[in-house]
Simulated scan of single mutants.
Amino acid sequence: MTGSITTAKVLIITQNWGIEETELTRPLRDLRKAGARVTLAAAEQAPVETLQHDRYEGERLDPDTTYDQVHAEDYDLLVVPGGTTNVDRLRVAEDPIALAQAFAKAGKPIAAICHGAWLLVNADLLGGKTLTSTRYIKRDVENAGGVQVNEPVHIDDAQGWRLITSRKPDDLDAFVGAIKDTLG
């Protein structure tokens, strides 16, 4: 890792709609406040519209770039926020799948919360991994070769790369704390 959060470069990827608000804003703001250089990359260079509980309008944020313009080698850690619609679209898009695979292949950590692990299912990265996520994708995780546990945060270092996962917005303190600890 970087050895210090103040030298860490973090990439957060989302679609432009359907992201669970706090699952994006908490890691984004908390990591920036701690000194990390955080890039928000969306599908399009247009406002990212979040939702609260997948249905109520949330905050709008401007992305820094698009995820087709970023490369895993330029970052230390990947964050995949949840939101059912967000990740349902991310998991079928070539660039997010390729980014997740590149992070894992390079031995770089990936942090996914709630539905975020759905991207890792489609990226074929969960074989031999133990993780936590929303209960709604438990069967998908298991069918992809992962072992699902019910914990606020779970860290797995199997297969040569670190996976940090959490279940839901209520787990954000533990999730962001695990990311900060990983970054140093």
Rank of each mutant, 00 (worst) to 15 (best):
N150A: 14
A42I: 06
F175T: 03
N122L: 11
Y67M: 05
S133C: 03
P27Q: 11
G116P: 01
C114L: 05
G145T: 05
P109I: 10
K33I: 01
A111D: 02
G127L: 10
V92M: 14
T7Q: 12
E20N: 11
G107K: 05
T132L: 15
N16Q: 06
T134K: 04
Q52R: 14
L40S: 07
I13H: 15
R167M: 13
A93M: 11
L51V: 12
K180Y: 01
G128M: 02
G128Y: 00
L11K: 05
D181C: 05
I13Y: 15
T25A: 15
E59L: 14
A178G: 11
L51F: 06
G160Y: 08
R29K: 11
G35A: 08
L77F: 02
D30V: 08
T130C: 03
Y56R: 09
E59G: 09
A111K: 06
D173P: 10
I179K: 06
L90Q: 09
V176Y: 05
G18H: 14
A8K: 00
D140E: 05
L131V: 04
T182Y: 02
I19S: 12
A178M: 04
D156N: 00
I97L: 13
D76C: 00
L78F: 00
R26A: 10
A112L: 10
A46K: 08
K33F: 03
V48C: 06
R60C: 06
T182A: 07
Y75P: 05
W161S: 06
A98F: 08
A8S: 03
A42Q: 11
L11D: 13
D173Q: 10
T50R: 07
G145P: 08
H115S: 00
I179R: 08
W118A: 14
Q45A: 14
V149M: 09
V38L: 01
V141Q: 00
G83D: 09
F103P: 12
L90T: 11
Q159Y: 02
R167K: 15
L126S: 08
H71Q: 10
D88I: 02
L126V: 01
I19P: 12
L51K: 07
I155W: 12
N86G: 02
V70A: 02
N150S: 15
